[in-house]
């Protein structure tokens, strides 16, 4: 499984492996609103995420 941390909501999801695009779709996040980071590297949507990878979603929308 892939673990996805969400900076904005502080929540954590686990999903099946797949491309970044598929994973965002699976957890219902618009790809325009986040940067997806793995091991301090920002990933493009086509990147394949492997089993046991940990992703961090950084919100690009600032509040207030």
């Amino acid at each position: 499984m892939v673990t996805v941390h969400n900076e904005k909501t502080g929540t954590q999801h686990t999903t099946k492996r797949g491309s970044v695009k598929e994973i965002l779709k699976e957890i219902n996040i618009n790809s325009e609103t986040v940067l997806v980071v793995r091991n301090n590297t920002v990933l493009t949507l086509d990147k394949e995420v492997k089993e046991d990878d940990v992703l961090m979603l950084l919100s690009v929308i600032s509040g207030g």
């Binding site: 904005k8 940067l35 920002v42 950084l58 690009v60 600032s62 509040g63 207030g64």
Partner: peptide, 16 residues
């Protein structure tokens, strides 16, 4: 956001 991340500016995610 990507620019600030790559430049390592310290920006905390906060919401009013």
């Amino acid at each position: 956001r990507l620019y600030t991340l790559l430049k390592k500016f310290k920006v905390a995610y906060t919401e009013c």
